[in-house]
Measured scan of single mutants.
Amino acid sequence: MAAGGDHGSPDSYRSPLASRYASPEMCFVFSDRYKFRTWRQLWLWLAEAEQTLGLPITDEQIQEMKSNLENIDFKMAAEEEKRLRHDVMAHVHTFGHCCPKAAGIIHLGATSCYVGDNTDLIILRNALDLLLPKLARVISRLADFAKERASLPTLGFTHFQPAQLTTVGKRCCLWIQDLCMDLQNLKRVRDDLRFRGVKGTTGTQASFLQLFEGDDHKVEQLDKMVTEKAGFKRAFIITGQTYTRKVDIEVLSVLASLGASVHKICTDIRLLANLKEMEEPFEKQQIGSSAMPYKRNPMRSERCCSLARHLMTLVMDPLQTASVQWFERTLDDSANRRICLAEAFLTADTILNTLQNISEGLVVYPKVIERRIRQELPFMATENIIMAMVKAGGSRQDCHEKIRVLSQQAASVVKQEGGDNDLIERIQVDAYFSPIHSQLDHLLDPSSFTGRASQQVQRFLEEEVYPLLKPYESVMKVKAELCL
């Protein structure tokens, strides 16, 4: 049975990233139509530049190519590739079939990587351009969430054990800070992308030097003109047959890092959902379990974690691919890159769409948070109580021993009897502590235990987050809708 299948058929496997999760716009960027249309555009740009620099290419040939950029006979191309065992030459023939007058000058002087690699770089750039505003929107939604809850005390956790208090907004800023680093890295790697350009079979530009009869300047002009037509500021000066596969490492490393950030955020949300302090959106008709109707599973956060793990592992592909590119190139890269580049971007696209949807509907339960604080705060307040007693004339050592005994009794009630923490009640009825009984409410005010959390939130948002989001103001209103 021949390899390949009808990918629109229910009898043929289709990647869930495309069929179930990723956005239509990201799927289109990695589609065959987008790819092969870009090949034709690159052939047109090459012909236009070659004509401008004096090669015998007519206006009629150029116009014929322009008129057929979208006229792609995919069936013919597939048949040609089956016959020739070469995808680029299959599309040269297919393009030439609908451009008979231009057929002889299509791909003039070029090698397969002229269309293959340059198209990949265009796709990487455009895919990054799709991700950047999506990530900015996630940051914006979380920034709104953090600002609104900047002063809401909550129990902090280290080692997932109760620690000092923080605020809900401050905790959210930990998430935002990681995503801001990801946004900066995505922008950097996007701006650092260079075009492969017009380089020939081993990167020496020998074929173009021959076409222009040894004119170095025209060869350099050709490279520059096509690079500018493709919208790049610069091209690699040095290439082998391909652009260095280190570029793929750079791009997928940034995406993998984004995956790590999203995994951490969504894990926190899942843990908070278990504590009943916070939940992701839950639709009115949504079913959490087929057997347990009360369940409210954090399905979206779980999906993000599941896909983020996949995204983090994909960076190993370009690392290994770059390491086995012998001399000017081997074909070890080809099949692998067809999979890992598309999957990385479709996965990143999915987790950003999902995280935006989550961040637009996060639900906080202040009463649950308050109750958990009441359970733990008495123990945390013991040092403040000791200091207040010393100020009232008591002995630190005597007070410490009193607190120690009462704390152990209260802990026994919590752990052995399943009761509430009654340390404060014990202190309130103990005559030894009568000098500070009137101060206990103040000493137990949760806001006095959150330090500068709310001020940190305000400063972080104003100095770091809002300036970073400013270039994306025009796209901030787009909502994230999930079908599944």
Rank of each mutant, 00 (worst) to 15 (best):
residue 5 G to Y: 11
residue 6 D to E: 13
residue 6 D to F: 04
residue 7 H to M: 14
residue 8 G to S: 14
residue 8 G to I: 10
residue 9 S to V: 10
residue 9 S to F: 11
residue 12 S to P: 01
residue 13 Y to Q: 15
residue 15 S to K: 06
residue 16 P to T: 09
residue 18 A to Y: 15
residue 19 S to Y: 02
residue 22 A to N: 09
residue 23 S to P: 10
residue 24 P to G: 12
residue 25 E to M: 09
residue 26 M to E: 05
residue 26 M to R: 05
residue 26 M to D: 00
residue 27 C to Q: 08
residue 30 F to Y: 14
residue 31 S to E: 05
residue 31 S to R: 06
residue 33 R to Q: 13
residue 34 Y to S: 11
residue 35 K to W: 07
residue 36 F to H: 15
residue 36 F to S: 09
residue 36 F to N: 14
residue 38 T to N: 12
residue 38 T to Q: 10
residue 38 T to W: 04
residue 42 L to T: 07
residue 42 L to V: 09
residue 43 W to T: 01
residue 43 W to K: 04
residue 44 L to S: 12
residue 45 W to N: 15
residue 46 L to P: 12
residue 48 E to D: 08
residue 48 E to A: 03
residue 49 A to D: 01
residue 51 Q to K: 06
residue 54 G to Q: 03
residue 54 G to K: 08
residue 55 L to V: 06
residue 56 P to G: 05
residue 61 Q to Y: 12
residue 62 I to Q: 04
residue 62 I to T: 05
residue 63 Q to D: 00
residue 65 M to I: 02
residue 67 S to G: 06
residue 69 L to K: 04
residue 70 E to D: 02
residue 70 E to P: 04
residue 71 N to A: 06
residue 71 N to R: 07
residue 72 I to Q: 07
residue 72 I to G: 10
residue 72 I to V: 06
residue 73 D to I: 05
residue 73 D to G: 11
residue 78 A to T: 11
residue 80 E to M: 06
residue 81 E to S: 09
residue 84 L to Q: 10
residue 84 L to H: 11
residue 89 M to W: 01
residue 90 A to R: 01
residue 95 F to V: 08
residue 97 H to N: 13
residue 98 C to Y: 15
residue 98 C to F: 06
residue 99 C to V: 14
residue 103 A to C: 14
residue 103 A to K: 10
residue 105 I to T: 06
residue 105 I to A: 13
residue 107 H to A: 04
residue 109 G to R: 01
residue 110 A to L: 03
residue 111 T to W: 00
residue 112 S to T: 00
residue 114 Y to A: 00
residue 116 G to A: 11
residue 117 D to A: 01
residue 119 T to S: 07
residue 120 D to A: 09
residue 121 L to E: 11
residue 122 I to T: 07
residue 123 I to D: 03
residue 130 L to Y: 10
residue 130 L to M: 10
residue 130 L to D: 14
residue 131 L to E: 14
residue 132 L to G: 09
residue 132 L to S: 13
residue 140 S to E: 15
residue 141 R to K: 14
residue 144 D to N: 11
residue 148 E to R: 04
residue 151 S to F: 04
residue 151 S to C: 03
residue 153 P to H: 05
residue 154 T to A: 04
residue 155 L to I: 12
residue 156 G to A: 08
residue 162 P to R: 03
residue 164 Q to N: 10
residue 165 L to S: 10
residue 166 T to R: 02
residue 167 T to K: 01
residue 169 G to D: 02
residue 170 K to I: 01
residue 171 R to I: 00
residue 172 C to N: 09
residue 172 C to A: 09
residue 173 C to N: 00
residue 173 C to Q: 06
residue 174 L to S: 12
residue 174 L to P: 15
residue 177 Q to A: 14
residue 178 D to R: 13
residue 178 D to A: 03
residue 182 D to W: 05
residue 184 Q to M: 08
residue 185 N to W: 14
residue 186 L to T: 13
residue 186 L to N: 11
residue 189 V to T: 15
residue 189 V to E: 10
residue 191 D to C: 14
residue 191 D to Y: 15
residue 192 D to H: 05
residue 195 F to R: 03
residue 195 F to A: 05
residue 195 F to N: 02
residue 197 G to A: 12
residue 197 G to L: 00
residue 197 G to K: 02
residue 198 V to M: 15
residue 199 K to I: 00
residue 200 G to I: 08
residue 200 G to T: 00
residue 202 T to Q: 12
residue 203 G to E: 00
residue 207 S to L: 02
residue 208 F to I: 07
residue 208 F to D: 04
residue 209 L to N: 15
residue 210 Q to T: 10
residue 211 L to G: 03
residue 211 L to T: 10
residue 213 E to T: 13
residue 213 E to S: 08
residue 214 G to C: 12
residue 217 H to N: 10
residue 219 V to N: 10
residue 220 E to I: 15
residue 221 Q to P: 03
residue 224 K to T: 10
residue 232 F to G: 03
residue 233 K to C: 06
residue 233 K to R: 07
residue 237 I to L: 09
residue 237 I to S: 11
residue 238 I to R: 01
residue 238 I to P: 03
residue 239 T to G: 06
residue 240 G to W: 03
residue 241 Q to R: 03
residue 241 Q to N: 01
residue 241 Q to A: 01
residue 244 T to P: 14
residue 245 R to G: 01
residue 247 V to W: 10
residue 247 V to I: 11
residue 247 V to M: 14
residue 248 D to S: 03
residue 249 I to K: 02
residue 251 V to I: 10
residue 254 V to T: 12
residue 255 L to P: 02
residue 256 A to C: 03
residue 261 S to D: 02
residue 262 V to G: 09
residue 263 H to Y: 05
residue 263 H to Q: 00
residue 264 K to T: 03
residue 264 K to L: 03
residue 264 K to P: 02
residue 264 K to M: 03
residue 264 K to E: 06
residue 265 I to Y: 12
residue 267 T to G: 10
residue 268 D to S: 13
residue 272 L to C: 06
residue 274 N to P: 04
residue 275 L to R: 09
residue 275 L to G: 05
residue 277 E to P: 00
residue 280 E to F: 03
residue 283 E to A: 15
residue 284 K to A: 05
residue 284 K to M: 08
residue 286 Q to N: 07
residue 286 Q to T: 01
residue 288 G to P: 00
residue 288 G to E: 02
residue 292 M to P: 02
residue 293 P to C: 07
residue 294 Y to Q: 00
residue 295 K to F: 00
residue 296 R to S: 12
residue 301 S to V: 10
residue 302 E to D: 02
residue 303 R to W: 02
residue 303 R to S: 04
residue 306 S to F: 01
residue 306 S to M: 03
residue 307 L to Q: 14
residue 309 R to T: 09
residue 310 H to Q: 01
residue 312 M to W: 05
residue 314 L to V: 05
residue 314 L to D: 02
residue 314 L to Q: 11
residue 315 V to Q: 05
residue 315 V to D: 04
residue 319 L to F: 02
residue 321 T to N: 08
residue 321 T to M: 13
residue 323 S to F: 00
residue 324 V to S: 08
residue 324 V to D: 06
residue 324 V to A: 11
residue 326 W to Y: 14
residue 326 W to H: 15
residue 327 F to D: 00
residue 329 R to M: 00
residue 329 R to F: 01
residue 329 R to D: 00
residue 331 L to R: 05
residue 331 L to S: 00
residue 332 D to P: 03
residue 335 A to M: 15
residue 335 A to R: 01
residue 336 N to G: 09
residue 337 R to G: 02
residue 338 R to V: 00
residue 341 L to A: 08
residue 342 A to L: 03
residue 343 E to M: 02
residue 343 E to Y: 03
residue 348 A to T: 15
residue 350 T to I: 10
residue 351 I to N: 00
residue 351 I to M: 10
residue 352 L to A: 07
residue 352 L to Q: 01
residue 354 T to C: 07
residue 354 T to H: 15
residue 354 T to K: 09
residue 356 Q to Y: 15
residue 358 I to C: 15
residue 361 G to D: 08
residue 362 L to D: 00
residue 362 L to N: 14
residue 363 V to R: 05
residue 365 Y to D: 12
residue 367 K to A: 12
residue 369 I to P: 09
residue 370 E to R: 12
residue 372 R to T: 04
residue 378 P to Y: 04
residue 379 F to Y: 04
residue 379 F to I: 05
residue 380 M to G: 03
residue 383 E to N: 01
residue 384 N to H: 09
residue 384 N to F: 03
residue 384 N to D: 05
residue 385 I to T: 12
residue 386 I to Q: 12
residue 387 M to Q: 05
residue 389 M to T: 04
residue 391 K to E: 13
residue 392 A to K: 07
residue 394 G to E: 11
residue 395 S to K: 08
residue 396 R to T: 01
residue 400 H to Q: 02
residue 400 H to V: 10
residue 402 K to L: 10
residue 405 V to N: 15
residue 406 L to A: 07
residue 408 Q to K: 11
residue 408 Q to I: 15
residue 408 Q to H: 13
residue 409 Q to Y: 13
residue 409 Q to A: 07
residue 410 A to Q: 02
residue 411 A to G: 12
residue 413 V to D: 04
residue 414 V to Q: 03
residue 416 Q to E: 13
residue 418 G to Y: 00
residue 419 G to A: 06
residue 419 G to V: 07
residue 419 G to C: 04
residue 421 N to F: 05
residue 424 I to Q: 13
residue 427 I to V: 14
residue 427 I to P: 08
residue 433 F to C: 05
residue 433 F to H: 02
residue 433 F to V: 04
residue 434 S to Q: 13
residue 434 S to W: 11
residue 435 P to W: 00
residue 435 P to H: 11
residue 435 P to A: 09
residue 437 H to S: 11
residue 437 H to P: 00
residue 439 Q to I: 10
residue 441 D to K: 11
residue 442 H to T: 13
residue 442 H to N: 13
residue 443 L to C: 14
residue 449 F to K: 13
residue 451 G to Y: 02
residue 451 G to A: 08
residue 452 R to A: 13
residue 452 R to T: 12
residue 453 A to Q: 03
residue 455 Q to W: 06
residue 456 Q to A: 11
residue 460 F to G: 04
residue 460 F to S: 04
residue 462 E to R: 13
residue 463 E to H: 15
residue 465 V to E: 03
residue 466 Y to T: 15
residue 468 L to A: 15
residue 475 V to T: 13
residue 476 M to V: 13
residue 478 V to F: 11
residue 481 E to A: 14
residue 482 L to D: 15
residue 483 C to E: 15
residue 484 L to H: 15
residue 484 L to S: 14
